[in-house]
Each structure stands twice: as structure tokens, then as C-alpha cells.
């Protein structure tokens, strides 16, 4: 807790000193039975920032972002997304909020029974805005072009490679232009080359859509390439926070263990 408190002001001054806060996690606890996954965890995400939450497998990283999006209820603390307290939102308001928050699943979670086109149309149809009527096809093509797979329109997810599926999943989160994207281990299970491509894609997307991103990862290459700021999640707490370089130069053995 002490190191985290010490480094907390650093990113704010380094990356976006005056940037608006889009996501706040304050003193959140979450337990599964006796397994205390998150204990008094706090972090802040600013607009236009790529924050990577680094932690070992099973340290509760995925639980954190599922709590943020409201898939899991939290035991204590508050999560505020775009100014709204997630825990107090009703179904309709939560759905409304979720249109502004993209979520890239570790397993991609593409709908296997649908073609790529239908996968991308699904969130569009869910949030059928009059302004977008008649433009669905255009939006789908645009999103596919953004992830570099314009020709997969009528393929089924099962026909695609792992990297392609990750891109399609990203395209699906982008089709409703999000303000925040939550990436759950975006490079896990991919070969190093594809992983680098995805990392680059994350940066491109962030620049093009000017989104904020919260990236969960334990892949140091991914952290290095995508992070503007890194938070270290150890034993349910935010152990340290800072830029990649700042943390790499720390002498704390717990932090150092991640960089070897």
C-alpha cells in the first residue's frame, strides 16, 4: 500500500496532467468465499490514457475488469465509470453505460453461431439508434477495416485464426464507438508476432478513436508497447503504479520479479 501511495501522483503529472477522470476504482473488495481476490483496491483512469494492470495469473485482474463492467458485484468500495456508480445502476442505465465501454474478452467470446458480419451487427442491433439506421453495413466495413480484416465479412468465427478472432472481437467492441475499452489479456494465447500486431492495433485504435483503455496483462512485451501507465496488482492490492520505465527501475523485488 505504501509504495502505491508514493507513486500515485506520478502518472498524472507525466501523461495527462489536466485530463478528465473517466474511471475510478476506490477501495474495492471482492471475495469468492475465503479467497479474497481484491482487497481495498483503488485506481484511476484518465481520458486518453492506456493503463495496464499487471499481475500474476489468478491475481484477480480479470475479476477487476468484470467488476468494472458490472458482470460481477463488488463486496465493498465504489466503482465510478464516466461519472456513474456502477453498483447503483439499474438494468437500462447499465446497458446504456455499457454501450460506451468496450470489453475485449480473453477468449474473444465471438458468437460461434453467427458470421462475422452478424457478430458485428449484434451490438448495433441491440442499440438501434435512428441516426445509424441504414448505415450498419458501412459501420461494419469500417470496423473491419480498422482491425485490418476487411474480407472476413461472411466467415464464421471458427474458420478464423486466433489472431483474426482477436481482431474481430476488437472490431465488435469498436462498432459502438466506446469511450473506454477494457482489454482482458489481449495477447494471451497468441504467438509473439501476432501478439505484437495486436499490441500495435491497440495503440492505433486508441489514437484513432481517442479512447481510454484499461488493459489487463501479464505479458511484459504487451505492457511495454501499450502502456502509458502501469499499475501492479499484487495480493489484491495496487502494489505499485508508474510508467513502464519507472517501475522497471525500481529495486523492489516484488516489482522486479515481473521484469525478468
Amino acid at each position: 500500500m505504501q509504495p502505491a501511495a508514493a507513486v500515485a501522483p506520478l502518472p498524472a503529472t507525466t501523461s495527462a496532467p489536466t485530463a478528465e477522470v473517466v474511471l475510478t476504482v476506490a477501495h474495492v473488495s471482492k471475495s469468492f468465499g475465503t479467497n479474497h481476490v481484491l482487497q481495498d483496491f483503488s485506481l484511476t483512469l484518465h481520458r486518453g490514457e492506456n493503463l495496464v494492470v499487471l499481475g500474476r495469473s489468478g491475481s484477480g485482474k480479470s475479476v477487476l475488469i468484470k467488476c468494472i463492467i458490472g458482470l460481477l458485484p463488488i463486496d465493498a468500495g465504489t466503482i465510478t465509470v464516466l461519472g456513474q456508480d456502477v453498483a447503483t445502476l439499474g438494468h437500462a442505465a447499465l446497458d446504456e453505460l455499457r454501450t460506451k465501454v468496450g470489453f475485449l474478452f480473453q477468449s474473444n467470446a465471438l458468437y460461434d453461431s453467427m458470421t462475422v458480419r452478424e457478430n458485428l451487427l449484434f451490438p448495433l442491433r441491440r442499440h438501434w439508434l435512428a441516426a445509424r439506421r441504414g448505415q450498419e453495413e458501412e459501420l461494419v466495413r469500417q470496423a473491419l477495416a480498422d482491425v485490418g480484416l476487411p474480407d472476413t465479412l461472411d466467415q464464421m468465427p471458427a474458420e478464423l485464426s486466433g489472431g483474426q478472432r482477436k481482431r474481430i472481437a476488437l472490431a465488435r467492441t469498436l462498432i459502438l464507438p466506446p469511450e473506454i475499452i477494457l482489454y482482458d489479456e489481449p495477447t494471451t494465447g497468441l504467438d509473439p508476432i501476432t501478439a505484437r500486431e495486436i499490441d500495435q492495433l491497440i495503440r492505433q485504435v486508441q489514437q484513432k478513436y481517442t479512447t481510454s483503455a484499461l488493459i489487463i496483462s501479464h505479458d511484459m512485451n504487451c505492457v511495454r508497447l501499450t502502456a502509458t501507465r502501469v499499475a501492479l496488482l499484487v495480493e489484491g492490492r495496487c502494489y505499485a503504479e508508474g510508467t513502464y520505465e519507472e517501475l522497471r527501475q525500481r529495486n523492489d523485488p516484488t516489482i522486479h520479479a515481473f521484469f525478468e
Partner: peptide
């Protein structure tokens, strides 16, 4: 159950679909 274990149900939920 396969939708559940491949997180597709969660994906729907975060797409703003109940």
C-alpha cells in the same frame, strides 16, 4: 453452457443485451 464457458453470455451482457 458453451455460451457461458466461452464468455459469450458475458459478451452479450457487455454489449448492452440482457
Amino acid at each position: 453452457s458453451s455460451l457461458r464457458v466461452t464468455e459469450q453470455i458475458d459478451a452479450m451482457e457487455v454489449s448492452g443485451t440482457n
